[in-house]
Amino acid sequence: MSALGKTAAVIVTFNRSAKLMKVLDALDGQTLRPDVILVVDNASTDDTQALVEARAQDDARIRYLRLAQNVGGAGGFHEGLKAAYRLGAHYFWVSDDDAYPQPDAIERLVQAITAFEAQHEWRPSFACSRVEWIDGSLCEMNTPRPVWDWPRFLTARTPWALVDSASFVSILIPRWAVEQHGLPIADYFIWFDDAEYTRRLSRSYPGIFCPESRVIHDTPDNRGVNFALVDEKSLWKFKYGARNEASWRRRERGRMGILAFAYGVHLQMKGGNVPWKLRREIFRAIARGAVFRPGIVKV
């Protein structure tokens, strides 16, 4: 267990200044305030920069990294984690610009990860919060994936399940994990970057799901990531998701992995009665993913 606990919050934002300010308010109210708050701005065209600047005038913890262009959430988290790592932080609390951590969310994550290490000697590669939607229900898209022996250390007093995949919404990553496994893949642009990254981190040891740390994800609706839900409006995102996951499956499980993935996607889309025109687009994205091999950048 480390005696060092410099914590950097990394928030990636794009054109959602009002929500971002609520996130910064929530960080201000934390029982364990991050030592650094790095706002990564994906070249917003709204008043994000002015509002962050005004706030940072009185809060030297806030740093503002404005990217030259919108490189998507994946690129933003890649750049943000890289910058925060270089600032010497020992824990990185990574989150979206529309997720409001409850006052003790970060403290609970830090406590959980350090207590887990102290009690079990294993080092969790991350700790993630329970992400709730605005009505208090579980946020579908931010549901972590448990490993087969998820309850191994779970008790009534330490309710931490082992998970190997989580989203970039209130997740605490220790420095050693970044050192060992590198940064999120920027080339993914959007979707599956968090799943790929946390699965990569989990090669050392799974992460832990900490239900006592809560965060409210202020999304327009509470939809999961399921190819049955593909429609015209969301097609572009699903295409990124299909390409990125196909690429990951190719890397981890070879060609058979892609075929299994494509079959699973096919069943989901069939179940959701997705129009054939959109299905073709998704399959094309999977085919692109078969030859898409982005590199992993180490710190």
Partner: peptide, 10 residues
């Protein structure tokens, strides 16, 4: 300082 080093408050 803001654009190259992300510093504002200092």
């Amino acid at each position: 300082y803001r654009d190259r080093f992300q510093i504002i408050g200092q």
